[in-house]
């Protein structure tokens, strides 16, 4: 088994009010079969053995689907491999002697909690604003009573594959959450079940996205390049079209529901 040695420059920040800074660590004898997070585990065990505080980072499933992990590795969210989350990035992508810069997602709407851990609750609030189909438990009719063209269903699935990791925001020079929001909107509006609430949904989710302080999309497409699930920016164009349409045709004669 081949092993490599690396020099890590890791962002350490004890809490939201600490300015934070890079600290250097040596990662020695790392197996090229280890994942990037396993490499950090090894470094953390060594730190613990010396009585130093381990590097805090978010992770859970370690199989690329929960969306909990994510750090900027050498300037790229989730690191150098395309369509790969940090937990699925393996050390064979690095060479002996490499220097590796490791930082948290950087966006005003994702405040740092500690080291590489950030607060992504803004994403939950965007979903809560309208990212659902209102289907009361137990009321639906038989599933096959709504035939859905396979193409529409497949396209909806492509959008629904988003894992909510936030790499799109971290990659965007404007820290825009357009790809995240657009993907959920597309998932739901491409399906007939999502049609009745479609206009209301796009208005509510877009305004929540803005209220959270995310920047605007200016078509850099960095989000798509960083997305571990390869979600297309075409969905952003669709969101913009749908939003415009909804603003023009909005039923202003109806009382507007106030949000907290």
């Amino acid at each position: 088994m081949s092993t490599i040695n690396l020099t890590l420059h890791v962002w350490r920040q004890s809490g939201p009010n600490d300015p934070g800074g890079f600290k250097d660590y040596q990662a020695k004898g790392i197996s090229t079969h280890a994942s990037f997070l396993e490499m950090l585990d090894v470094v953390n065990e060594e730190l613990a053995a010396r009585g130093e505080e381990p590097i805090a980072f978010d992770h859970d499933c370690r199989e690329g689907i929960c969306g909990m992990c994510g750090m900027v590795v050498n300037g790229r969210p989730h690191g150098p491999q395309v369509e790969t989350t940090t937990c699925q990035l393996h050390m064979r992508q690095f060479k002996d002697g490499d220097e590796v810069w490791i930082e948290p997602w950087r966006a005003r709407s994702f405040p740092v909690i500690k080291d590489l851990v950030v607060d992504r609750s803004a994403f939950d609030r965007i979903i809560a604003a309208g990212g659902y189909i209102s289907a009361r438990t137990g009321s639906p009719r038989d599933a096959n009573e709504i035939p859905i063209p396979k193409e529409a269903s497949d396209l909806a699935f492509e959008a629904a594959a988003c894992i909510g990791c936030g790499a799109c925001v971290a990659a965007c020079p404007n820290a825009s959450a357009a790809l995240f929001t657009a993907a959920k909107l597309a998932h739901l509006s491409l399906l007939p079940q999502g049609e009745p609430e479609q206009q209301d949904r796009v208005r509510k989710m877009v305004s929540q996205m803005d209220a959270e302080g995310f920047g605007h999309c200016t078509n850099h497409f960095e989000c798509m390049a960083a997305c571990p699930k390869g979600i297309s920016v075409d969905y952003i164009a669709k969101m913009n079209r749908d939003f415009l349409k909804a603003m023009i045709t909005a039923r202003t004669d109806l009382p507007k529901r106030e949000k907290q």
Partner: peptide, 22 residues
């Protein structure tokens, strides 16, 4: 059987045949 109905109503994109059925 109710679970599948519920999930489809929520917009879970299950695999479909070309007929549009599940």
């Amino acid at each position: 059987v109710n679970i599948i109905d519920q999930c489809v109503a929520q917009g879970v994109p299950f695999a479909r045949e070309y007929s549009g059925l599940l």
